[in-house]
Design a protein around this nucleic acid. Structure first.
Lengths: 231, 231
DNA sequence: CCAAAAGTGTTGAAATTACACCCATGT
DNA sequence: ACATGGGTGTAATTTCAACACTTTTGG
């Protein structure tokens, strides 16, 4: 006796396209931004979309995402994490295709600006995004939600800031992520209590006369991190 | 001028298999259990695996997962959530196949016991799982981790328990999830403070002479839930 | 009457929130 | 000398963690 299950197993199965789309966050001048791509070729020339690619047989989904990310920003070793799949049968009108969305955090001033522009990619304020193709706006919303969750138990800031940054900058970043004001005394107290920052003997005077101390992230501590990060 | 990006876009892309595997948790007699499947047909006859299926062109990944879940447990409307994809190019020795893992929480006594057994599915204590095929053990470990995270900010318990349950039962469930003892006074205080339980006028006398009050989950409150659930 | 599980309160420690003033310096 | 952003401390409140005894009842 064969059950449905067994028959099903032996039956020929369907192949489909697997794509990956990258939700790339950056932080610049106090504003949380997203890298979007203005399509310069058909299909949907002129429309905005996330940066993505089809996954090839010889590469993992992660590798595919890193491949496009490096292609467009010039960066390697970027923080990237899978968000979820977008897998409705009818999501792509052309052909059956599921997309594995991944979000990345990059330091905007480390990117290769020319390269980014040469691909038609643009940074947009997260609060004023254009309409994106397919379900890409959903992906962005979901990624933002995830970023907020993640920021609440891990110090994500450091991926988005340059190597040296000031406490007010870090605070601005958290304010941009959560879209709300944070008390500077409480913020500093909290962040310092984690013991993950090293104060440098340099000041950044670009935003005030007095200048603010620059800090770097103390990566030795990174692994011991399982404290709640309630900011 | 065409960039690599544009050429890449136009090039023929690769199709591959997409599968979904279900990490099905249940809770029975104080023990957190996983539903695994003993393969009764080739390939890998006799080996243990998760319950899964290839995704068909006409269905979403979610639908595919619900399809197998219903097929094997007889249950519909089960809580199920995507975990992540397992997507290494070489993960399946047969052919390129990525798997979207999903975890489900079911109430063991609602299942169709005969149906489960007729498919060769078995409940195993989460602490003593057999070796599973491919990367299925990784999936289970990742799902357990996720379940613990989720349980810390949402009352997952109710998916795993029958409609009526006692506080000591709910506590046992949390102890099984976290694999550690919880103080009964603190537990009760905390759970009650959320105001999500309704005490019924019935007692469960199966585990004590005195009997414990039965409660039901107050689903009206379910949506207002964004409190931290630190148990 | 007693064994076994159910049920209940308090206290000290720790974390969180709210809040206002002085400091350094380039102009 | 003053405007501007950088930097600091304290008290009230809330949350968390630790801890032990009484109640009920079937056998």
């Amino acid at each position: 006796m064969t059950t449905d299950w067994e028959k099903d197993w032996y039956k020929e199965h369907d192949k489909m396209y697997v794509a990956t789309d990258c939700i790339i966050f950056g932080f610049d001048k106090g504003i949380l931004k997203l890298l979007v791509f203005k399509r310069r070729v058909a299909p949907q020339k002129g429309a905005y979309s996330l940066i993505g690619s089809f996954v090839q047989l010889k590469e993992s989904v992660t590798e595919a995402a890193k491949r496009v990310l490096t292609e467009i920003t010039g960066l390697e070793n970027v923080f990237m994490e899978e968000l979820r799949t977008y897998n409705l049968a009818e999501r792509d009108p052309g052909y059956r295709c599921i997309s594995v969305a991944q979000y990345a955090l990059i330091s905007i001033d480390a990117q290769d600006k020319e390269l980014v522009e040469s691909h038609g990619a643009e940074w947009h304020d997260i609060r004023q995004l254009p309409a994106l193709v397919l379900d890409h706006n959903d992906m962005v919303n979901d990624a933002l939600k995830r970023l907020r969750e993640k920021a609440s138990y891990q110090p994500v800031g450091f991926e988005l800031l340059p190597d040296k940054f000031t406490i007010p900058q870090l605070q601005q970043l958290y304010e941009a992520i959560y879209q709300k004001e944070i008390d500077p005394r409480n913020f500093r107290k909290k962040i310092m209590s984690f013991d993950i920052l090293t104060r440098l003997d340099e000041k950044d005077k670009s935003t005030s006369k007095r200048g603010a101390y620059l800090y770097s992230f103390n990566s030795r501590q990174k692994l011991n991190f399982n404290t709640k990060f309630n900011i």
